[in-house]
Deep mutational scan, measured.
Amino acid sequence: MEVRTIKVFTTVDNINLHTQVVDMSMTYGQQFGPTYLDGADVTKIKPHNSHEGKTFYVLPNDDTLRVEAFEYYHTTDPSFLGRYMSALNHTKKWKYPQVNGLTSIKWADNNCYLATALLTLQQIELKFNPPALQDAYYRARAGEAANFCALILAYCNKTVGELGDVRETMSYLFQHANLDSCKRVLNVVCKTCGQQQTTLKGVEAVMYMGTLSYEQFKKGVQIPCTCGKQATKYLVQQESPFVMMSAPPAQYELKHGTFTCASEYTGNYQCGHYKHITSKETLYCIDGALLTKSSEYKGPITDVFYKENSYTTTIK
């Protein structure tokens, strides 16, 4: 009895394709271990004539594949690729409408935090270190965002349907971005203890939790000093293409032309909904596939993004 075979390709990165001759009487799992086709788990399936010449994702289970996976995804987590594939199996079914010149995501599976993050990423200057993220990001900007969303979920250790947080998501993504040249110098002034300067680099240099107003941050924000008295913390120097200011959701007025974009969060910790506000020729609110415009805006804002380049204080 002759062994019926077909020729397929296996890959971990969709760049390096490895030619395989597979036995049609055995499952993919018996031949390769966990195997995925377009995100779908085909591990328990036997090869079919229609699979001839198709590319299958496999887990990096030998040295060659491990090197290829690390170079593309910059992670050695053995569960990463499987999590990416199972997320992709959902995100490829989502709709990605162009809204006001940006790629958004039609609401499904509690994905409003991903839509808000995706919209924000198209408006701030950011370059990702893992080629996987950078490639998928370019495709997302062009309207094909399924891979990018699935990668975000995998890097953030999230599953489809789980509630997510924009600030946490951005923080994970910033860790995989090139923020080497970003720098922030802060000064804390206390009447009792004097003053202390701190220099922050990388992710810490672009994120701040405690106030939404970048102007206020430049002037000074009140913080408790270690001595128990009130101290003032203010920005001395900022070198970065953008800054992200966050605070627990509270009524906040966004003035046209003073910011790049913002995240609105309605609801409580267990259950809520994100919308995205962007400042173009007027203010726009993007909620999944829905767009509304207004000249002014007041609502429960939790993150505001500002364009920056270089700032030095005039406070002496």
Rank of each mutant, 00 (worst) to 15 (best):
V203D: 04
C271W: 06
C149K: 02
S213W: 02
G39Y: 09
K255N: 03
Y96E: 05
G143H: 05
T232A: 03
N100F: 03
S279L: 03
A154Q: 05
G288S: 04
Q98P: 08
K93W: 07
N157L: 02
I105M: 04
M207C: 09
T198I: 15
M24P: 12
L118S: 07
E2M: 08
R167F: 07
L179W: 05
D77R: 07
T103F: 08
Y113E: 04
L17F: 05
R66F: 13
M24K: 11
I286M: 08
Q197P: 06
L200Y: 12
T211L: 07
A262Y: 00
R83H: 06
T91N: 02
K7T: 13
W107K: 01
F305I: 14
C149S: 07
S104T: 00
N178D: 14
T312A: 09
G272S: 00
H90C: 13
L153Q: 02
L283M: 12
I286P: 05
F217K: 01
T292D: 10
N147I: 08
D62I: 07
N111E: 00
Q237V: 08
V58D: 02
L102T: 15
T159I: 09
Y284D: 08
G272K: 00
S246T: 00
D41I: 11
N89Y: 09
I152A: 08
M170E: 05
L163Q: 01
K229N: 15
P60V: 08
K127T: 13
D41P: 11
Y138L: 14
L17E: 07
Y311P: 14
C182D: 07
Y274W: 04
K280F: 11
G161P: 01
C225V: 03
P248C: 07
A145W: 05
Y208R: 06
K280W: 10
N49W: 12
T192A: 13
Y28Q: 07
N16P: 04
E296T: 14
E253C: 01
Q196R: 13
K280M: 11
R139F: 09
V221G: 04
Y73P: 07
Y172V: 14
T312E: 07
T19C: 11
R184W: 09
D135E: 14
G39L: 07
A108I: 07
G272D: 00
V203K: 12
L59I: 14
S104Y: 09
K218C: 00
M245C: 07
